[in-house]
Amino acid sequence: MNLAKVIGSLWATQKHHSFNGMKFCFIQPLNEHRQPAGKPLIAVDPDNRCGQDETVYYVEGGDAATIKPDHTMPSDATIVGIVDSLSTDHKS
């Protein structure tokens, strides 16, 4: 899983039915110092809880499709949690 910051939202009424009731977020991947690292991408927010500028973590690839049991989605990036706090004693 990766860290990211929510930088935008995307609404689509015409979408695959497995996304019904879900919103899409534009997210900017972050490194462990919460600095932007890599290209922004679109991720689905299954529980509609992400807000602008929040730090989240997301799953990529095939696993992103099977986050919810018996509800597969054609998604290659799914937000699975919002970060409350992040502590690292990583000295670099």
Binding site: G8, L10, W11, A12, T13, Q14, K15, F26, Q52, P74
Partner: peptide, 13 residues
């Protein structure tokens, strides 16, 4: 696969 058609896109408000 195309799985959504965008209605509205908002970036940084």
């Amino acid at each position: 696969v195309i799985m959504a058609i965008v209605d509205t896109l908002e970036i940084n408000g």
